[in-house]
Design a protein around this nucleic acid. Structure first.
Length: 621
RNA sequence: GGGCCUGUAACUCAGUGGAUUAGAGUGUUUGCCUCCUAAGCAAAAAGCCAUGGGUUCAAAUCCCAUCAGGCUCGCCA
């Protein structure tokens, strides 16, 4: 559903294109910012090249010839610009109408988009970098759900990988006195496993025998025959996953479905995919050369790959086992609903909102059309270091003739969170265990503790329970907001000071602004909508609030929750400025109604915006 | 060698379907609680938008090259 602003823009575009005899797509309009007195502007330069005319003359022509729309009060030509002014009566009515509009229930939407996040390897907890992934993915889901489509949210678990195998090997072979103690953070299974993984990784590096033994266990697990071993391994993986979800739920991350790497092998998914690949002329069995005995995708035939050190991608190793990318391709085929095999699913983990996450259960599960149906778009939130692998996967899909699926495969290649120590940048690594101290659990706890100090100081009279719950909200939203605010193409240098900061461009600033606005509404909960008047300042803010839909669309098209974060800061800044300058409760009746209306509209918009960033608002902080 | 990402104020970042005067926050300096929550507001200082070309009446924005930093091209996952 379009907002009145979008409709108005479309109509103006239509009229301009009629005057200029151009296509509507070629007309771009500017919406008023800050101090400008006009509401909508058109810059003739954007079409001057196309029409081969002088921009000033084009602007003059539009101002003179345009069919005046009923909601436009005045049109003014200024240099190369045509500025449009809305009728204030019309604007007032539209703004009021829009705020009163009934919000559609979108839960019934068919899930035509699939997003995968954060797919953390089992055998460790989420560090703060994984938090960025999870928050990005979940926020993108919300943004799609807000406007267009249902979203199937999946978590892909690499249960056949080396990390998980290390943990399983460790529980069997590491001496009891060497095992991490189950105390402090390590009482959580993921934290404990993460510490064990670092111990085993160190042993592997120092001792070749250990390395060999762990790889043997990994191979055994992948062979899917030793049932006792598989059971032990699966239990460890599940224990870790549940512990990871304790963290994910704390920051509002939910899923619909979990798929394990082993599910692809246990079902027919992988086999069916491999048959498709084998029948393609670009996938061959190498009889000689360095890849002898392997099945490879001949990407070297494509020009982007030609000059690479290793242009071809191995799918099946010479020992007959499949590589990670081969399994990922089969998952990707499954995501798009290309395969005949649909797998069976069963409710498996109950989330905090009461909804279940489904897991694959080939024996007791049932088919689920929603999980296996054709998808319009598949989005993978995976770190930027995997750009090449993801691209290779999409190209292989294309080579197999799935052009449309290729076009609709989106990789959100977010940059990592780094941390500084002694002036040098470091990447988090599970193997080295350098994430200890930077796990999402620890960062959240620390942020909440800092927030609590502030809450206790400011809200002395409240109960301890209330103080704790507000601190939890402030601390967690601070961490989430920090992860979202910076666009995902940019590295984040982890900085405790910034996470803990409560002023400026922060979630706390937004929460504070919201609470202040709510304070006004508490004191004067109702107002008369029919007796309402706005001044220039109110119009400026209300117009910005009315842009919310446009902003969400922009964020969706750019896959960028950061756009919504920055918009939130902008409207909060405008409101705070307003708050300091104009009294609401003491203003005369008409004006007071207008300002109360504005305050309410601001609260609604900010709340909606923040909900897309997984952030709840508190009435008081 | 190939591919991708980044470079805007001292620091962290918006802006990048070309254009009305390049914006925030932090930090610095200075005002403002007798007034709806001062985790706030207002003001000042601070920019050759990495560099060099090109396209254009007009470039931080588009194109090319260069420099700097990061990621990546494994029978690891």
């Amino acid at each position: 559903m379009q907002s009145f602003l979008e409709e108005a823009i479309d109509e103006i575009k239509k009229e301009i294109s009629t005057v200029l005899k151009t296509k509507i797509d070629e007309i771009h309009l500017i919406i008023s910012e800050k101090d400008a007195d006009w509401d909508i502007a058109f810059c003739s330069a954007s079409v001057a090249g196309l029409l081969k005319e002088n921009p000033v003359q084009i602007a003059q022509k539009i101002a003179k010839d345009i069919n005046k729309l009923i909601f436009i009060e005045k049109i003014e030509q200024k240099n190369i610009y045509v500025n449009f002014f809305f009728h204030k009566m019309w604007l007032t009515r539209k703004i009021v109408e829009q705020q009163l509009i009934f919000k559609e229930d979108k839960t019934y939407l068919k899930k035509t988009i699939l997003i995968e996040y954060p797919s953390v390897n089992p055998g460790k907890p989420l560090h703060i970098g994984h938090c960025r992934n999870a928050v990005l993915g979940a926020s993108l889901s919300k943004i799609f759900e807000y406007s267009t489509s249902g979203v199937l949210k999946i978590n892909y678990i690499d249960d056949l990988g080396l990390q998980a195998a290390c943990v399983t090997w460790g529980t069997i072979n590491v001496n009891k006195n060497e095992l991490p103690k189950k105390e402090g953070y390590a009482v959580k299974a993921d934290q404990w496993q993460g510490r064990l993984y670092a111990i085993v990784a160190k042993k592997m590096k120092e001792n070749e025998e250990v390395d060999k033994a762990v790889r043997e266990i990994m191979k055994k697990i992948e062979e899917r025959t030793d049932q006792a071993l598989i059971k032990k391994h699966n239990n460890l993986v599940k224990e870790c996953l549940l512990a990871q979800y304790q963290t994910l739920w704390r920051i509002g991350i939910l899923h619909d479905l979990i798929i394990n790497e082993s599910d692809l092998l246990d079902s027919k998914t992988y086999k069916e995919t491999f048959e498709i690949l084998k029948n393609n002329k670009n996938v061959v069995y190498e009889k000689e050369g360095k890849n002898k005995g392997c099945w490879v995708a001949k990407l070297g035939n494509l020009k982007e790959y030609k000059k690479m050190t290793n242009p071809d991608k191995i799918l099946v190793r010479s020992d007959g086992t499949s590589t990670y990318i081969a399994k990922d391709i089969s998952l990707h085929f499954h995501k798009f609903g290309i395969l005949k095999d649909m797998m069976n699913y069963k409710k498996c983990i109950k989330q905090l909102n009461g909804e279940y996450i489904y897991c694959v259960d080939l024996v007791d599960g049932k088919q689920n059309n929603e999980f296996s149906s054709k998808k319009e778009k598949v989005i993978n939130v995976i770190g930027s270091e995997q750009i090449y692998t993801q691209k290779a996967m999409y190209d292989i899909l294309n080579l197999c003739g799935y052009k449309q699926e290729y076009d609709n495969s989106i990789h959100i290649a977010y940059e990592h969170v780094w941390f500084k120590e002694k002036g040098e940048d470091f990447k988090f690594s599970g193997r080295s265990g350098n994430w200890i101290g930077y796990s999402t659990d620890e960062v959240l706890d620390k942020a909440v503790a800092i927030a609590l100090e502030g809450v206790k100081e400011r809200q002395k009279d409240k109960t301890e329970k209330w103080q704790n719950s507000i601190a939890e909200l402030l601390g967690t939203s601070a961490v989430k907001f920090t992860m979202i605010k910076t666009s995902w193409t940019k590295k984040i240098a982890f900085d405790w000071g910034k996470i803990m900061d409560m002023k400026g461009d922060t979630a706390c600033y937004l929460q504070y602004t919201y609470a202040r606005a709510k304070g006004i509404l508490r004191k004067s909960p109702s107002y008369n909508c029919d007796n309402i008047k706005f001044g220039k300042a109110e119009y400026a803010i209300l117009t910005k609030l009315a842009m919310f839909n446009i902003i969400v669309n922009k964020a969706r098209c750019a896959y960028s929750p950061a756009i919504i974060a920055n918009y939130s800061l902008e409207i909060a800044g405008m409101f705070n400025s307003f708050y300091a300058t104009y009294p609401v409760l003491n203003a005369e009746e008409e004006i007071k109604n207008g300002r109360l209306f504005l305050t309410k509209a601001f609260c609604n918009t900010l709340k909606d915006a923040l909900s897309l960033l997984l952030i709840d608002c508190a009435e008081e902080i």
